[in-house]
Each structure stands twice: as structure tokens, then as C-alpha cells.
Design a protein around this nucleic acid. Structure first.
Lengths: 170, 170
DNA sequence: TTCGTTTTTTGACAGATGTCAAAAACTTCT
DNA sequence: AGAAGTTTTTGACATCTGTCAAAAAACGAA
């Protein structure tokens, strides 16, 4: 099985600040981020909102588009030089058909992603900007090293200026 | 297989305002909500925050607790008389082991739940209270019929007073 | 290094939202 | 219908946060 797995994956290497997935296009691949870091963002009222970050090693894609095969509302960009291994949706479906074990891995992956998102959602819900920032420092410190202030601010759901002021107060 | 499935599920019938899952307890079951409506909530600074609603027919549980088997941070209450069919995590795991088909159903379910939560997250992220309320009316009008103002407000991430004022302005 | 660009910080101000408190409207039960 | 409880509305006020604009700092390329 390991042999068969390998032949489905294709390596993708991207430099810093390049796009992996573009808004408006259908995302047909699931990517394993082997090394590097990325961010997912979308446009709102002319502003770019970064709503998630991805760090190696993990599976990433524009989940909504990949799952529904609708045009993606988000774009994905590299935050630094990154190496991916990608597999198409069609091929992944075949693998899941052929191997219960693969279907299970994907199920467990989704379960994990769901839980993580739920936690983030709850954390964001009724906390002040400062509390969310403090929580970020505790729970996802790696983000601080790779993301710019603007990316961070939108990730936290606040303006860049407010984040700058929160930072200067300690 | 249908026969075998049936024997794993147990019916639970609850009146209005009763609790299905309580904070602090490990949630060991997945529930199929056959009829009725429920809400999931947690305590924050002495206030009860309702962060999701569930409506028949769908599968519901305290996902974080069910998945990790850690004590639940949320409680689940019925909004009206409701009928559930529950299956234990152990038994569901057995079913998933024995039937690839079941594993697939669960995988697809998680995929759907993830997408839904992501949409809600993005919608909430940078919109004003009024916009979120308008969006709720368009996208989840059924919630309006069952939830009290207080539940709704916390679901939208705003105070009850603010929601009341938004409502009175149209 | 130096110039030009991007990112971050700071200031002034307006507007949205939360909080506390009380009144009003609505429910439920007897 | 009436009493008691709950839910919703309203008012006054403080504060957090966003916006716009400009200055300062950091970064990159030549």
C-alpha cells in the first residue's frame, strides 16, 4: 500500500509569497505541507482578511472548495519557501474507496480539524481583543514568528492599529 | 447490516428545558436528534453563552468531549420536547471498524460539520452585530422560532440589549 | 550605504457595543 | 383573573475599537 500511496502524490515547491490556491478557482487538491508556512485569506470590503495559518507538517487545502468543488472564496499564500505533496480529489477518493484505512485517516483528520476550529471559535466569541492576543501567545506562539502585524490582526478579528496598541502596552 | 445497526441505538426522550449533556461530564454518546431542538452552551464569567443550536434531523453531541473523551466544557439542553437515538462511542467505533461504509458516513458528516462551522466563523469574523443578525434571518431562520433573545444574542456574540435594539430598528 | 517601499506606531476622533438599572411586556400556574 | 416569575425593552453612560491620517521604523534592492 505504501508504494501505491507514493505514486499518487506529486511534489510542489513554492518560494515565499506565492499563491497555492487562488480565489475563484476550484481547488482540486489536498496538500501535505512538508515544510514551510502558509496563510488562508479572503477579501472583504476591499481588505484582505487572513483567517487561518498552516504550519508544516500538516494537511492543508481550501477545505470548502475542495469538499464541495465550488470556486474557492479564499486564497492561500506561502509565508516562506514551502514544500508540498499534493494529491487530487479524484485520486484521494479512489484511495478512500480502496482502503478503509485511508478513509479512517481522513475521518480522524477532519475530526481533529473540527475540534480545533471549534476551540478557536469559542475563544474568539466573547473575549476582548487583548484577551485573544494573550491567548494566541499562549496557544499558538509559532504564528507570531511568521505572520506580519496585518495578518495577525485580521486573524484575531481586529484592526492593525488596535493590535499595535495592545502590543505596546506590555 | 441495517438490523445490526438498529440494535446499537437506544431511544432517549426528553421534555423541554432538560439537559442531555452536562458540563464536566464525559460525553460518551453520539445522538441522532429525530425530533425537537437543542442548544449547546457554556459558562463564561458567570454568564451562559449559547454557541450552537441543533435541529432535527441531525447527529449531535458534545463533539469535543465525545471525540477526546475529556470532560465536556459545554452543556446541551432541549429547547422543546425532543426524541433522540443514541449510540455509545465504543459501539460506534466497532461499527466503523466493521463497516467501511459507516466510517465513510462519519467522515462525510465531519466534513459537513467542518464546512458549516467554517462558514459561520467567517461570517462572524468582521461583521457588525446588525449584519450578523440579518444574516441569521436569511440563513438560519428556524433558529428565530425556537430561541429566546438571550440565547440568540450570545449565539451572535453580542449582548441581549444590543440585539433588542437592532430588532426594534426595523 | 542609500533610496524607495513596506510595515508598524501614534494621534485624534467618531461610532458601536457593553454594562447597570429599571420599566414594560409577556408567560405560567393557581 | 391575579400573582409571581421570566423575558424583553428602554435609558444613561463609559469604554472599546475602527477609521483616517501622518510619522517613525524596518526592510530590501541596487
Amino acid at each position: 500500500m505504501a508504494d501505491e500511496l507514493h505514486q499518487y502524490f506529486e511534489q510542489v515547491v513554492l518560494p515565499k509569497n506565492s499563491s497555492l490556491v487562488s480565489e475563484g478557482q476550484i481547488c482540486r487538491h489536498l496538500y501535505f505541507l512538508e515544510s514551510g508556512a502558509i496563510r488562508g485569506s479572503y477579501m472583504l470590503d476591499g481588505k484582505e482578511i487572513t483567517h487561518w495559518f498552516g504550519f508544516a507538517p500538516e494537511f492543508v487545502t481550501s477545505f470548502h472548495s475542495f469538499s464541495t468543488q465550488q470556486p474557492s472564496v479564499e486564497s492561500i499564500y506561502t509565508l516562506e519557501g514551502s514544500v508540498f505533496w499534493r494529491i487530487s480529489k479524484v485520486q484521494l477518493s479512489q484511495l478512500m474507496d480502496n482502503y478503509h484505512e485511508i478513509e479512517r485517516l481522513v475521518r480522524i483528520a477532519y475530526e481533529g480539524y473540527y475540534i480545533r476550529l471549534e476551540e478557536r471559535f469559542v475563544n474568539a466569541h466573547f473575549k476582548t481583543a487583548a484577551e485573544r492576543y494573550r491567548q494566541l501567545i499562549e496557544q499558538e506562539p509559532h504564528i507570531l514568528e511568521k505572520a506580519s502585524l496585518g495578518h495577525l490582526a485580521s486573524y484575531l478579528g481586529i484592526s492593525q492599529e488596535t493590535l499595535s496598541r495592545i502590543r505596546s502596552k506590555r
